[in-house]
Each structure stands twice: as structure tokens, then as C-alpha cells.
């Protein structure tokens, strides 16, 4: 019964994603501002919030494309994930060089946050770019 109810749920509308994106942008902005003003940027979690805001803006822009969940959207997703695999490898190589060649020091939490934020943002930005080109 519960499965049937879940299956009958409709995908949220574009307005839901836009509203959440505005809310997340405001929250992320506050967190970034507070960490910059306290001189502790990047703490880690504000980057995650920023990437969530980027993801929600992208979902808002992508809504007419993914709402139908047709074969074109599936192809956009496949290509997007493949391109991001390459982009992530390049970013990781860049990050390794930054840590090896510069005096920059980051904790494990900060590093994971930077990588996760980059991954979340780049995946959805790639989807937006591909949806315009395909």
C-alpha cells in the first residue's frame, strides 16, 4: 500500500525547486559571509551549502527536461556523468599539485567538502550545458 502511494506521487513543480534554490542561496550566502568575516574560510559546510544552492538552481532550470524522464534526458545524464568523470580526475590532479607545491593546508573535512562541493556543482552544471546543446 505504501509503495503504491509513493509511486503515485508526482514530481515537484519548477516553482518548488526555484523556491528551495532561493532559500538555499540565502542560507549559503549567510554561512559564507560569516566564515569569510571570521577569517576561517573555507570551513567546509558552507561550500556544501553553496553547492546545494547551485544544484537547486540547476534543477530549476532543468525541470522541463527531466520531468518527462524520457530517453533524451537519460542520454544527457549518461553523457554528463561521463564528462564529469574526466573533469573530476582533472580537478583531483590539480588538487594534488596544489597540496604538493603550495603551503596550503586543509583538514580532511575541508578537503572532502571541497571535492564533494565541486562534484555536486559540476555534475548539475554539466547537465544544464548538455540540455542546451542536445
Amino acid at each position: 500500500m505504501a509503495v503504491q502511494n509513493f509511486a503515485s506521487l508526482k514530481a515537484p513543480g519548477k516553482g518548488v525547486f526555484t523556491g528551495l534554490a532561493i532559500f538555499h542561496t540565502a542560507v549559503a550566502g549567510l554561512f559564507v559571509l560569516s566564515s569569510v568575516l571570521s577569517g576561517e574560510f573555507p570551513l567546509g559546510h558552507e561550500l556544501m551549502l553553496t553547492s546545494m544552492a547551485i544544484m537547486l538552481w540547476c534543477l530549476s532550470a532543468l525541470h522541463p527536461h527531466f520531468a518527462a524522464d524520457d530517453e533524451r534526458w537519460r542520454r544527457i545524464r549518461e553523457r554528463g556523468m561521463f564528462y564529469n568523470y574526466i573533469v573530476l580526475l582533472i580537478f583531483l590532479a590539480f588538487l594534488v599539485n596544489v597540496f604538493a607545491l603550495t603551503p596550503l593546508e586543509m583538514s580532511g573535512y575541508q578537503t572532502v567538502s571541497v571535492i564533494a562541493s565541486f562534484l555536486v556543482s559540476s555534475v548539475f552544471i554539466t547537465f544544464v550545458i548538455l540540455s542546451k546543446r542536445m
Partner: peptide
Amino acid sequence: LAEALGVSRQTIISLEKGRYNPSLEL
């Protein structure tokens, strides 16, 4: 056409512009 095929209107736009080749099924 999108409704008849069960795809989004964006898919029809892409098909008509030749930016996207459909699967054999479509």
C-alpha cells in the same frame, strides 16, 4: 507530438533541430 510519443516537448524541439538522433524505439 510529445504527448503521443510520451516524451518532453524539449525532446521534440531537439529532434526537429537535428541536435539529437532518436533511439530505434522512438
